[in-house]
Design a protein around this nucleic acid. Structure first.
Lengths: 219, 219, 219, 219
DNA sequence: TATGAATGAGTATTCATTCAT
DNA sequence: TATGAATGAATACTCATTCAT
């Protein structure tokens, strides 16, 4: 019964406060991501970020203790986002080829919406702080491991032939970046994932069937 | 008669001068490559380079007009090196699969010896100067084009099935980086190139033959 | 015999280089001392120091790694100076009263010429860095110890009456600052030291002789 | 009739308001004194003070117009406190030696309870604002003058021998600081004052009487 | 009164580049 | 050529102060 009014206010303030702060935080992260992606960590100044957000320089420091930590939080936020997207898919017990295609689709979709992050990650400005190095390393290992597990699963299931899974995982890890950055197309992320999947799945070698068809139809 | 030694040196200088200058230039480029690869452009100081070369800071400016130009020349030198290696191979009229395998081998070999360059290229610190952006763009397009042409050639020859050559080329372009950086192995560049080639060539799908073998032998 | 010319040059350069650098270093220390003494550590900017020295801001950093270290070196330089002055006197085996008077004279003389240092020391801006705290503490203890030893010596010799030497030493330590700062007079350091000594002496001196003399000669 | 409680509070507020405000003011001053004494004016932030008081940063500014003024008020408060303590004693017509001993006792007692103030005063961060400089100068002059007057009184009364009262006063002024800071002892302020007094007294006292007494009574 | 988010002037420090020797 | 002292623009970060709530 005590001071219901103040309780309400507190509650409302609590929420509105947290969400205001949270919104601003995200806004800073988004703008900083864009700028860093475009120009690289060192060529973006804190003032530049502040200007684009529309606040004073000092305000950035109310949300992030340093430029480096801001950078790190960009990574952490993205990591959580992509992980939470992937984990649902990973949990499912689809056959490996379907799983692989879905995972590729989710990853392409995520990076299509967050190309900045991919660019920041690839730039690999690892050396700023130890935490950053460890973070990207962890990310990379986790992604590669994911591909590996799907490949192993497929081999057990008999749907993938026996390749070096480590190497094959690295190939998939590497292609994401180049395809996302340089594949000029109107296709959706899902369509691109399909295309990529097919190349990886079937290879580039002319298959028996095709060859025969070629022979038959004079291709 | 005074200081005959120095006179001799002077006499030879016509020749030794140019070559000394050339040698020093290369030495600077090499050391700068290593440092920039390790720490990134912005985290390497001109003084650091000079120290490691064993000259004074100002001396670097006798060989390169600016830090940015030095950076650009690292790229240019590498580009010339890899191009001259590749062009001999490209000129040959091998069948596409062989050509592809050979090109991959040469590229892996080059980057194995010049991992610094690959790291610098991937870091993509493209924004320093317009020339730099244009240069890496040119490099990338040229490499992708090379893969595309081999793929098209293979398709014409009937040895490669009909895939989207642009996309497939991007896949190959992308995997080089991840494989070179993260494939922990004692294999030679040639062996790695073979392995990669096989994955790309045949895909990961269990083939007819294999499946049948599996059936026959209860694998 | 080898290249005597270059040896000479090197030698000359060695000297002229070191002395130029040394001179500039001292100049910076002197000007910084004055400014810090006047305004306090925090209210002096590095730029201000540089301006007054007549160099650019960056130049200060060629001589001192940081503002804090510059501050510390001001102290260290002064400490060495006063110590080297005192140690000659301390070594002598004069009777305690003479020794005390001489020591006071040397200290007054030193601080008269280096009032800035005394002001910096008294300001006790201890907390900047641990080294600084330790340094002034060391300095203080050393000076107090010096007074104590002289007092003890005097007591042993029978020329000083038995007072608490620790407390008496602290009194002497404390008066130096107030007298140097606030005693408006044209007297020389030696004359001031004499005056101070007399006040203190009559307190610690075993007064029998004087008293008798006073009685005998109607003083 | 609504909210009678708040009405009551309002009614009482005339009194409780002022005293609450007054109490908070003093609390801020006390905490600020401690912090500034410990770390120096520049190394204490307003936020730090607010945190320790348990209020928000802005609240400090409801009580003090600026950090500098807060600093000044710390001094003013202390000055009033010590002055009100001393003035009663000064008014009395005790003989000079007794007066001197009593004054020393009061001063030692005050600073023993307010070592922070002594530390702040000694730090002499006089340059922040003109008022501050004038204030500490005033304080110092007043204290020195006090010692001088007692000394002069003693000389007139024939209990102190003829010394330079200005210099002697400065000696007393200076010793307070060093003794308070560095005399490690369990003695009370009164006992310390006695000890100090004795050292000083035997120096400034006209010793005839003592001497004679000593002679007569074998002291 | 009280809050605490926002401000932006101020400062130490770095480093590419120049230039007298 | 080579040096390295000197420069000064650039930049991350701090903190006293303000003000809307």
């Amino acid at each position: 019964m005590a001071t219901p009014k103040s309780m309400v206010r507190q509650k409302v303030q609590g929420v509105s406060y947290r969400s205001r702060r949270e919104r601003r935080r995200e806004q800073i992260i988004k703008i900083a991501s864009g700028l860093i992606s475009e120009k690289g960590y060192h060529d973006v100044t804190v003032e530049e970020i502040a200007d684009k957000v529309g606040v004073a320089k000092g305000t950035i420091y109310l949300y992030f203790p340093s430029k480096e930590k801001l950078y790190l939080e960009i990574l952490e936020d993205s990591y959580e986002a992509i992980e939470s997207i992937l984990e649902k898919e990973i949990a499912k017990s689809d056959p490996a080829p379907i799983k692989l295609k879905k995972v590729l689709t989710l990853i392409f979709e995520f990076y299509k919406r967050n190309l900045d992050i991919l660019r920041i990650l690839s730039r690999d400005e690892t050396h700023l702080i130890r935490e950053h190095y460890e973070f990207t390393e962890h990310w990379r290992l986790r992604r590669i491991k994911l591909y590996e597990r799907i490949l192993e699963k497929g081999q057990k299931e008999g749907s993938f032939r026996s390749t070096n899974t480590k190497l094959t995982a690295l190939i998939m890890f590497g292609l994401v970046r180049s395809v996302m950055f340089f594949y000029r197309t109107d296709k959706t992320a899902g369509e691109i994932a399909d295309e990529v999947f097919t190349v990886i799945y079937r290879g580039i070698l002319v298959s028996q069937v095709e060859e025969e068809e070629g022979l038959l139809y004079g291709n």
